[in-house]
Amino acid sequence: MSAKRAKYGMVIDVDRCTGCGACMIACAAENNVPPGPADSTDRTGITLMRIYRADNGKDFPENESVFFPVSCQQCDHHPPCVSVCPQNAVEVDAATGIVAQIPVRCLGCRYCMAACPYHARYFNWWDPVWPEGMERELNPDVSLRMRGVVEKCNLCFHRLQTAREKAAAEGRAEIIAGEYVPACVEACPAAAITFGDLLDEESEVHRLSQRGESFRLLERLGTGPKVYYTSEREWVRALAEKDPASTPGRTAATD
């Protein structure tokens, strides 16, 4: 509907992120992600948006840490998951640049998960089950995914649809910037996430993404993520490209 080509992306100010998890919960509630059963773990759960804690690798008391909210990085250039899917269940929307999983076509081979350098794809290891009655509180705009398929963040594409419908109802050809924001962006209490059209040179997200303090994860792979991070801290920026072997690795949050 929208004639203009857009490239939606976000800039996450990791200096602001306190790892409160609001984005993760907002995302799960918005996208009808079921709560993991009792035997799920951080390796089998579904967190389309997930916050990782990273640190500077030093010991107490010099240790400093940072929280990285990582959802699908919305690779702009040859997304690794698109080319590996044997049955075209991952599609890139040309009009918005959104990389979207089509769970109904997914057979659950999980090759895309192996291909994703950001571990941003999640498999439905269990049937989606909510406690009795809770399924009535699910978001009617988002369909459920069944067991055995892969899912990931699609930048709350349904919200874009809603915004477009609203624009159309009001006789506008284009949606207004700010009419469409993903749930995580909306939920962040620290306003750490800026979302918008990276092609729109007047947008805040464009401005922030062009700053020297902005970086993307694993840029060396050439996948061109549309999710930018920004930090004033040198060591944090260095994390993006750092050889995982040279850092002691991720630390689980322990508070």
Binding site: I25, G36, R50, I51, A253
Partner: peptide, 12 residues
């Protein structure tokens, strides 16, 4: 139950 996203399904 959905808070399992923070406590169990991630190590946040």
């Amino acid at each position: 139950p959905i808070m399992s996203k923070l406590n169990r399904e991630s190590d946040l």
